[in-house]
Design a protein around this nucleic acid. Sequence first.
DNA 1: CGGACTTGTTTGCTCACACAACTATATCAT
DNA 2: ATGATATAGTTGTGTGAGCAAACAAGTCCG
Lengths: 173, 173
Amino acid sequence: MSTPLTSVSSDARLTTMGLLFESAAGLRRLFHRQAEMSGATANQSFDILIRLARSEENELRMSELAAQASLTPSGLTRAVDRLQQQGLVTRRSCPDDRRGSFAQLTPAGQAMMSEAIPEHLSQIDQILDDVFTPEEEAQLATYLRRLRDYALEQNRAAGITCDDGVASCPGDV
Amino acid sequence: MSTPLTSVSSDARLTTMGLLFESAAGLRRLFHRQAEMSGATANQSFDILIRLARSEENELRMSELAAQASLTPSGLTRAVDRLQQQGLVTRRSCPDDRRGSFAQLTPAGQAMMSEAIPEHLSQIDQILDDVFTPEEEAQLATYLRRLRDYALEQNRAAGITCDDGVASCPGDV
DNA sequence: CGGACTTGTTTGCTCACACAACTATATCAT
DNA sequence: ATGATATAGTTGTGTGAGCAAACAAGTCCG
């Protein structure tokens, strides 16, 4: 056997999915590179900081933040640990629910983000201006939003292992 | 200071970028979940296997494969190591350039992919059919392709540290 | 020919993330 | 109240990926 294992007709859709992952990976590198060049603002988990910066009181519940950043709870715990060590974030325990906590930007974190965000925004502006017309940009956003919501929904549905009384869960008798 | 650090006008574009990453992450999980459920076909670095399966002779140069899979050369070396241990891939040294090698699907790898790819394709069909009209799908693909090519180009340009004789490279006198 | 530089791949090291198990609080049924 | 279950978050452990340095083979002069 010496020929590819996919038919031409399926290739287009496979490629579309590939494009999604490749463009995301490519842009991630682009952002990472610029963040790195800006010296002081270089920080992995920039994603987390931005989401905090965009929130009321610059704080979010851990679980909410995990969902927004596409991290597992455990992954987020570690990420916030690191940011805390860097002095950019604090934990504030939730008064209404003593299980919960907020991650919150410290003044230092706010200061850093005040500097870093404009750079990031201008990089995004540049990219989008270079690649899309405003209409295309809006279209892309709606397409991606649909895709994200679909994936979110499907993952949520799959996460509920025994959603309607199915007894197929291993070990639950 | 108690208000978010971003203005409303910038939020849209920031969100668009967020959507790209979130949709990619969401779909990645969706695919991973299904792969996992299909038992035998469960395999991380499915991406790599698919790209091999889609290629002539089911083989690709390591560097080419790394680029396609958005991995660094080192990351790919390790990934291929693992796949080789699983018996799904072999290395074939390039006759024309003795530095280079090909990663190639073994018969076992081909067999596995013959089984796994149809499932994967049907999952993709389902997603795209659920979320987009054919025209929208085509549009999305062109948008993503532009974005990917842009990122590729920018990253490539940035990778060439001293592209036009700039003497700013540290330590090159 | 022979040394300087480039390119393709691999190795040493470190870090970040996921999964599973655990703790602590909350909620619900009886 | 009280025990069963669910939810929020943290910790132990393994794995995958990146960076930088090493290595090996090709290329480019002189």
